[in-house]
Amino acid sequence: MIINLALGIVTLSVLLVTYRVLRGPSWGDRIMAFDFLSVNLVVLFALIAVRTGYLVMLDAALVLSLLGFLSTVALTRYLLLGRVMK
C-alpha cells in the first residue's frame, strides 16, 4: 500500500535528519536540521491521519508547523542579536 510506503520513506528521512541534528558541525546546521525535522513531522502527521483515520492529527500538524517556524525565528534571533523579544 502506497501510504505505508510513504510513511516508511518519511520516517527514514526523519532518521537521516536526526543524524544531522546530532552531528551538525555548526549551530546553523542544527537549526536548519531542526526546522527540516519539524516540516518532516508535519508531513508524517498528515500521512498518519490518512493511515489511521484520525483527523485530529491534521490539527496537530497545523500547530506543529506554527511551532516549528516560531522556534526557528526565535533561535536565529537569539544567536544573531542575543535577544528573542525585547
Binding site: 510513504a6 528521512s13 546546521d29 527540516f36 508531513v43
Partner: peptide, 21 residues
C-alpha cells in the same frame, strides 16, 4: 504522495550529504 515522498527523501539525503550549511 509518491512524488512528495520521493522529494522529501531526496531533501533528507541532500541535508546529510552536502558539504556546507
Amino acid at each position: 504522495i509518491l512524488f512528495g515522498a520521493f522529494f522529501v527523501l531526496t531533501a533528507a539525503i541532500g541535508v546529510v550529504r552536502f558539504p556546507d550549511l
